[in-house]
Amino acid sequence: MNKCLQRRGFTLVELLVVIAIIGVLVGLLLPAVQAAREAARRMSCSNNFKQIGLAIHNYHSAYNQLPTHGTGTNPLLTAEKTANGPWDHHRSSNMGNRMRLSMLVGITPFIEQQAIWEQISNPMGTTYPAMGPTPDVLAYGPWATEIPGFRCPSDPGFGLPALGRTNYAACVGDSFSTHPHGPWNSYRTQRTGEEGSRISSRGFFKTLDKTRFRDCLDGLANTIAAGEIATDLGDDDKRTVNWRDNSNKSPTWGQVRNNPSRCKSKVQADRPQFWDPIHTVDVNASQGRGFKWADYQPTYTSCMTILPPNREVCGPYNSAGVTLVSTMSSRHQGGVHVLMGDGAVKFITDSIEAGDETARQISNGYRDGHQSPYGLWGSLGTRAAKEVISEEF
């Protein structure tokens, strides 16, 4: 037999060389593939936000106001007590939601979630009242439902201890001091002339109070309506869980009010996205960022333009996530999506000019309409401070 006609196989060395070449090619292509996937997820996230913006505008067209952030029912109250504001909002109840519903609940019929809205508003054959129990009741189906339009595809958060998660939060301005109170000084005493509410509830949404487009004197295109937030993964991420030390009663409300970046020193030096383990992160496991899409409290569905994007969340040790400096955050590289009042979606980088992060909180010590101390970032979060935004962002 002619040896020239014999078929010769690959040697072991040749196979190893081919495998090595394939490995190198895969290594070169994998980052590009991952970048393409993230770009697609980021575009999907932006589209979700655009749908939320459209829903807000359709809601305003139907009801001549924005969906209220902090609304609902409280049948346990007498008419006299109801006139003075929500009562025991932090207590769980199956008989009413204690005025804790977020603006996301109101827009469900406008984002093709009519079925969820019907369950909430017309609970036929259930033991729950119309508009449901408080948003922390796990057994209530709608509150535990993950709505795809409220989730960013880049965020891997899933399951308990969260209920239905959300990555989109209402912007309430550049002050956290009276967020849970809205137009009330406390849950028992109404403000005189609501002056305090006007001074510190300066965002596109006012908690426990209605707002309209006409209230946005800075212009819809210059005011952030909502921002993106990353949900908590249980890893002590500074952006998704509030640091506090209950045993030492730190930080106090006054410390955070006087310096919103008070918790910055508790972040790891070599891992600046996480709280330092030598400090106490003493938080209830269910109080992670974005854990309850139906709950208006700042931990879950509110954001502020105080600290720049992807900075730490910080609040008093005894606030239970109700009083909290809660900025925007995301799983995207380098910034966050924001929804402007006119429905446009923009990507804001972490390096946006944010003024003095240690500036004392806007509160009763400031006059109504005082310019935000938090630079361009604070200006974008306020609706009627008459700041001129002359640069592209």
Results as ranks from 00 to 15, higher is better:
residue 7 R to E: 05
residue 10 F to A: 08
residue 10 F to W: 13
residue 11 T to D: 09
residue 18 V to A: 12
residue 29 L to V: 10
residue 30 L to I: 11
residue 31 P to C: 07
residue 33 V to K: 10
residue 35 A to W: 15
residue 36 A to H: 13
residue 39 A to F: 08
residue 44 S to R: 15
residue 44 S to I: 12
residue 46 S to F: 10
residue 48 N to M: 04
residue 50 K to Q: 07
residue 53 G to F: 02
residue 55 A to R: 05
residue 55 A to I: 02
residue 58 N to Q: 15
residue 59 Y to M: 05
residue 61 S to V: 06
residue 67 P to G: 03
residue 68 T to R: 12
residue 68 T to L: 13
residue 69 H to Q: 04
residue 78 T to S: 07
residue 80 E to K: 13
residue 82 T to A: 14
residue 92 S to D: 13
residue 98 R to L: 06
residue 99 M to F: 11
residue 100 R to L: 02
residue 100 R to V: 00
residue 101 L to V: 03
residue 107 I to D: 00
residue 110 F to I: 04
residue 112 E to I: 09
residue 112 E to P: 05
residue 113 Q to G: 06
residue 115 A to N: 10
residue 117 W to C: 04
residue 117 W to P: 02
residue 119 Q to C: 10
residue 124 M to L: 15
residue 127 T to A: 14
residue 129 P to Q: 04
residue 132 G to R: 02
residue 142 P to M: 05
residue 145 T to G: 01
residue 151 R to M: 14
residue 155 D to K: 15
residue 156 P to H: 14
residue 157 G to C: 12
residue 163 L to S: 01
residue 164 G to E: 00
residue 171 C to M: 12
residue 173 G to E: 06
residue 174 D to M: 09
residue 174 D to Q: 07
residue 179 H to W: 05
residue 182 G to P: 00
residue 182 G to Y: 00
residue 182 G to K: 00
residue 183 P to T: 01
residue 193 G to A: 03
residue 203 G to H: 07
residue 207 T to V: 01
residue 209 D to F: 00
residue 212 R to Y: 12
residue 212 R to L: 08
residue 215 D to S: 05
residue 219 G to A: 05
residue 226 A to M: 11
residue 230 A to M: 06
residue 239 R to C: 04
residue 241 V to E: 09
residue 243 W to L: 04
residue 245 D to M: 00
residue 249 K to V: 09
residue 254 G to K: 15
residue 262 R to M: 13
residue 266 K to W: 08
residue 277 P to K: 05
residue 278 I to S: 15
residue 281 V to L: 02
residue 282 D to E: 01
residue 284 N to P: 08
residue 294 A to M: 02
residue 295 D to E: 02
residue 301 T to R: 02
residue 303 C to A: 12
residue 310 N to T: 03
residue 311 R to T: 09
residue 312 E to Q: 15
residue 314 C to Y: 07
residue 323 T to G: 04
residue 327 T to G: 14
residue 333 Q to T: 10
residue 339 L to A: 02
residue 343 G to A: 03
residue 343 G to W: 02
residue 347 F to R: 03
residue 352 I to G: 01
residue 357 E to G: 11
residue 359 A to W: 07
residue 360 R to V: 07
residue 362 I to T: 11
residue 364 N to G: 15
residue 366 Y to T: 12
residue 369 G to P: 08
residue 370 H to A: 13
residue 380 L to T: 01
residue 380 L to M: 01
residue 380 L to K: 00
residue 389 I to V: 03
residue 390 S to V: 08
